[in-house]
Amino acid sequence: MARRKSKKRTQNYKKQVGQVPGALVYTGKKETQKLFIETFDYNIDSIIEKELVNIEEAFKFKSSNTVTWINLNGLNHIDEIEKLGQHYDLHPLVLEDIVNTGQRPKIDEFEDYIFIVLKMMYYDESETIVSEQVSLILGENYVLSLQEAEGDVFDALRERIRQSKGRIRGLGPDYLLYALIDSIVDHYYAIIETMGNKIEDLEDNLFEGLTKEEITSDIQELKREVLKIRRAIFPLREIINRVDKSESKLIDNKTLHYFGDVYDHIIQVSDTIDIYREMIWGLMDMYMTTISNRMNEVMKVLTIISTIFIPLTFIAGIYGMNFQNIPELDYKYGYHIVWLVMIVIFIAMMYYFKRKKWL
């Protein structure tokens, strides 16, 4: 069993030892995902939203005087990503990190663009955490976002761009980068809220003694979810901190205040995750204590029953001995008297146990 799990964990790392640095090897599991490219090209007065047929249609936006958001779904399409990288002058190692879905969240600054890798997470309908890598590239007048598959947390941001709500249409691509990161971080709040409800439900069940066989697997699943979120959120501190200290011309000083707000949110989520981590460990201890107490109750009842029957067995043993000369055997009411003595002993011991609060 352990050997199969180890194999499952390592099969995502498809890059072989000795492979050329910068070689594009898709490490995800969605190898049949269709290519989907959408663009939002806007300024304060107008917006053009379009679904592109091929990657070549995105090339014209590089030199436009508007803000362009190009969102690509389908990291398994290596050739298209290579074309995009060549046109936007992306470093080969950047392209390698984009298609490596096991990449740790990070930030790399270049002269003409900033590259950021994040983990986007949300609960699906079955309350299972969906984790997907999102790569963000900030250029002079554009933001590229590359995802493994369709389905993300940016729908509210798309609506804000369409309806020109807030300040999104009046600011530059650096603010768009902030809005994308903020959308990802905001959904961490939804995750920890749902996780908090799960922990409270488990606590209530444990306090009420409503334990079940699946509770250990539920606790283990929560532990895995907490670790997954922690691995995603913890590196974000470094990323936002580096953005805040960045001297890149691509980020305006006014936008840095918004990144500071995201940093505060990340700290809050990180602290909450650490608290939940301790609570989940406490749940396991509480479960083991509950099982131990239940076992003690069972042993107490069995001990009481054994104690009650010890004198009764002693009496029955004496009168069950095969001696020829037992005076009580000839007594007319001897049988009834023995039963009466045993019943009186039973009642007396039950009364004694109750007074001692052993029952």
Rank of each mutant, 00 (worst) to 15 (best):
M321I: 10
N241V: 05
R294E: 09
E125L: 15
I305Y: 04
K356R: 14
T32I: 11
V301W: 08
R167Q: 13
F259E: 01
S64G: 10
F323W: 08
S131V: 15
K212F: 12
D89H: 07
I168S: 05
D89F: 10
R162Y: 11
L222F: 08
D79N: 15
P327I: 00
G74D: 04
S292W: 07
Q11S: 14
R169W: 06
F59T: 10
K8F: 11
A190D: 14
E56Q: 15
S126A: 15
Y122G: 06
N65H: 07
F110I: 01
M288A: 09
D155L: 07
V226K: 03
N71M: 05
S164G: 13
L340Y: 06
S292Y: 09
D174K: 00
S131M: 15
R162C: 10
M195I: 13
A156N: 08
K332L: 10
P327R: 00
L202C: 07
T289F: 06
K7M: 15
G196Y: 06
K30I: 12
D330A: 14
P92S: 03
I291F: 10
Y263Q: 13
G102R: 14
K245C: 03
G74P: 07
I48W: 08
L256N: 00
S164T: 02
T255P: 03
D152M: 05
N325F: 13
E278N: 11
L52R: 08
H187C: 06
T128L: 15
I191Q: 02
Q163V: 08
A190S: 14
D285M: 10
E200H: 13
L24A: 08
N205D: 15
E82Y: 06
D97I: 09
I229T: 11
L72V: 14
K198F: 14
G209C: 12
T289I: 08
K223H: 12
A58C: 12
G209T: 04
A156L: 12
L329W: 00
K30T: 11
K332Y: 09
V94Y: 02
N141C: 03
L93F: 04
Y113N: 05
I267Y: 01
L138C: 04
G209Y: 07
F346R: 00
S6C: 08
F353I: 05
E96Q: 09
G334D: 02
G28A: 04
R4P: 09
N12H: 15
F115A: 01
K83G: 05
L329M: 08
V298F: 09
Q324M: 11
L312T: 02
Q268E: 11
V226W: 03
F154H: 02
I275N: 14
W69D: 02
R169V: 06
R355C: 10
I215Y: 07
I192C: 05
D112G: 04
I275P: 07
L206H: 04
I308F: 12
S246P: 01
N325A: 09
L329Y: 06
G139P: 00
Y276D: 04
L256I: 08
I251T: 01
L84V: 05
I47V: 14
K254C: 01
F40L: 13
V185Q: 02
F207P: 08
D152P: 14
H336K: 09
R4C: 10
V20N: 10
I343Q: 00
Y189A: 07
K34T: 04
D261G: 01
